[in-house]
Structures are given as structure tokens and as C-alpha cells.
Design a binder for these strands. Structure first.
Lengths: 199, 199
DNA sequence: TTGATACGAAACGCAACCGTTCCGTCTTGA
DNA sequence: TCAAGACGGAACGGTTGCGTTTCGTATCAA
């Protein structure tokens, strides 16, 4: 019989230290990027000893990996507001608010450059930053299709690209600032109506 | 009377060295990012002496700035093919080919993370990478408006966002690789038609 | 020819930072 | 109460890379 409560002897590792280390790493990553993240600064901000960090992570890269994987990746699908426009507005609100809180808004472009050409890091980036947000939009697109607001012959993934892409693009060319993003609902209107004149 | 041919005494600086330094810097930047760009590697790849580099640029940051500013920023507007679809296909071809040749495709996401939070660098990024490509699309949108292919009441800048955004977005989430970008013309079709059912 | 300046090559000092190792203390199970 | 192992703090060696300097050579105008 293996004991479920089995534990190694000695003092167990501190959960506070776990959290403080990852939190500090994420903050530094969002603030100044990978290059400026040093183990020394992580130690300073988290208030733990350097040995405590290296007992958990063998290198800076390993720490960053763990920090990304530690990102909260379950973003809830907002309540059904009854219309695509309402759902989309609520989602934009949610994502922007959440991103502002966790710093994901600046974390995304920063990480982006680090993961180019590194498949393993890119998979983490996709799994913990891209896909969770994409999943939410996919959900409201499927609702809209069920309501008949979106044509059934439009591929769901393409619809998501059209609704999300312009925002990410503007976010990038505006330097990660929220201003100049434009009104989500207004832009959605144009996406829905299309660019061609009424046939 | 000032002499137009006036020149400082002594041996003039080598134009070959100028070019070799900037070219090496751009290559390293695109290949491995700012962090991995070292003056030592620039010296090695360009084949010049380190003093030759520092005679021109006082620091690594200054060199990178100059390299970005040196990027070819005049992308020609393609010939009028007579239709938005044709113009767009030609543009996509042009931009992708040019980006593949100069490495701008991987340069863009890499630089992106470096310019976040640094207004001066961001201005360079915008001026030499974003705006020249955006200008081309703006041109073909205006042609399409003149032809009546795009509604006159749609803001040109918004139209550009809708046409370019989804591609940049896909480029990002695919990790800077061209595969998985999808067919430009097919996506344009959906943008033109819109997502809503025919009224 | 001469003086000024650039050239490539090599060496150097200096600072930053990684990864390791010590220390004395604290927290757990046995 | 004791051994095991984690804790924060501090120091160390090694490496890397920036920025400077020196060297002998090459190239320009006067």
C-alpha cells in the first residue's frame, strides 16, 4: 500500500517561496523583458535566497519556462448576452482588464520575440497565452453561428482571426499601449458588414 | 563660397566597412535577436576591426538604431491589376518575398519586444518596418474605393487594419513561419463579404 | 613626400551575471 | 530530542561582452 500522504523527510519546501519566485519572474519579464531578467533581480524582488531558486530551477531558462506555465490560463467564457455584439464587448472588456492586471499585454510582445525559432518555448507561448484567449472568442463565435448572426459557411477559425487579428495588429503597431486601439464594437460592425458595397 | 566637394583631411572612411557593419548587424538581429547580437559577432561577421565599428557608433544600442534606420523602407506600390483582389495578391507576393529576402519577417517580432516601452525605438520600428508596408496597402485600398469595390463610408485606415491584421496575427501565433498563414485571397474574400448573412 | 586619418588585429580593464558553495537558522517527521 | 532538509544571506570563481587603447599598415590631400 503506498501512502498518499507520503512525504520526504526534513522541512518541506515553502509554498510562499514558490509563489514569490514565479511572481517576481513574471513581473520582471513583463516589465523589462527576458534580457533584463537576472537571477539576482528575481532573488531581490522575491526576497528569497539564491540557493532557494536554484534548488527549484537549474537555470534562468528553466525558471522562465515555469513562470510562463504558471500563468493563469483559464479565462472564463462570459455569460451569454444574447447577441454577438454584447458577447464581444464583454469579452474585450474581460481580456483587456485581465491583461492589464497580470501584465499579459506587455508580456505577449516581449515573449513573442523570445520564442521565435524556439519550438519548445513557442509551444508554451501558444498554450498559455494565445490559446486560452482564442478559446473564448471561438466560444462566442459558435454562439453567434447558432443564432444565425454569422454565416454557417464561414470557418470558425477564420472568423476568430478576423475578429482578433486587427486588435493584436493595432496593439503591436501602437507599442503595447491601449490608447489608439479603437472601439471594439465599431470595428466588429465593419467586420460583420464586410467592405464591399451591398450587392 | 563653400566648396561642395569639401572633405576632411586624411583617409576617408570606407563605404564597404559601413555597409558590412550594418548588414552584419541586421543579419544577427534577425537571426538571434538583440540579446545575442554582440559587438564581437558583428566584428567577426563584417570582417572589420572593432575600432572601426566604435569609430562610427558609440555603443551597441546606437549601432542597432542605425541598422534599423538603414532598412530599405521604400516598397513600391504594385502595378494596378484592375481589381482589389489582383492588387492584394500581388502585394502579398511582394511583401512576403521581400520579407523573406531581408529577414524582415523574423526581424519584426524580434524588434517588437525590444521597442515596447521605449518610445524612441518604437518610432524607428514604426517608421521603417510598419509604415512602409502599410502605405502600400493603403494605396490599393484607395484604388479599390475609387473603383467602387470598397464602400466609400469605410475608413481607409480601418480597412487596412482589417486586411493586414489577421495576417500579422497569424504570423505571430504561428511563430514567424510562413506555413499556416492561409491563402491571402481567400481570406480577403471573407473580409470583403463580411461575416453576417446576406440581409 | 608629408601629415592626417582610416584601416584590421589584438590586448586590456571593467562590470555584470551565472551557477556554486558555504553559513547559521528554522521547520518538519521519527 | 534528533536527523534531514529547506530557509535567507553572503561570498566566490568563471565567463561574457562592452568600450578603450595600442600597434603597424594603407590611403587620402596638399
Amino acid at each position: 500500500m503506498s501512502d498518499v500522504e507520503t512525504r520526504p523527510p526534513g522541512r518541506p519546501r515553502s509554498a510562499e517561496a514558490d509563489e514569490a519566485i514565479l511572481q517576481a519572474a513574471l513581473e520582471l519579464l513583463a516589465e523589462d523583458g527576458y534580457r533584463a531578467l537576472t537571477m539576482e533581480r528575481v532573488r531581490e524582488r522575491s526576497g528569497v535566497g539564491k540557493a532557494t531558486i536554484y534548488r527549484r530551477y537549474g537555470s534562468k531558462e528553466e525558471l522562465v519556462r515555469a513562470a510562463i506555465a504558471h500563468l493563469n490560463s483559464d479565462i472564463p467564457l462570459p455569460d451569454d448576452t444574447g447577441s454577438l455584439q454584447g458577447d464581444f464587448a464583454a469579452t474585450a472588456q474581460n481580456v483587456l482588464a485581465g491583461a492589464a492586471r497580470t501584465g499579459a499585454l506587455s508580456l505577449m510582445p516581449r515573449l513573442l520575440s523570445e520564442v521565435v525559432g524556439e519550438p519548445e518555448m513557442h509551444a508554451l507561448f501558444h498554450e498559455h497565452l494565445v490559446e486560452p484567449r482564442r478559446r473564448v472568442v471561438r466560444g462566442i463565435v459558435e454562439r453567434a453561428k447558432a443564432r444565425g448572426e454569422i454565416r454557417a459557411d464561414v470557418d470558425t477559425e477564420v472568423a476568430v482571426d478576423l475578429m482578433v487579428g486587427p486588435f493584436i495588429y493595432r496593439l503591436i503597431i501602437c507599442g503595447g499601449h491601449e490608447e489608439g486601439l479603437g472601439d471594439p464594437v465599431e470595428l466588429l460592425g465593419t467586420v460583420m458588414a464586410g467592405l464591399s458595397p451591398r450587392a
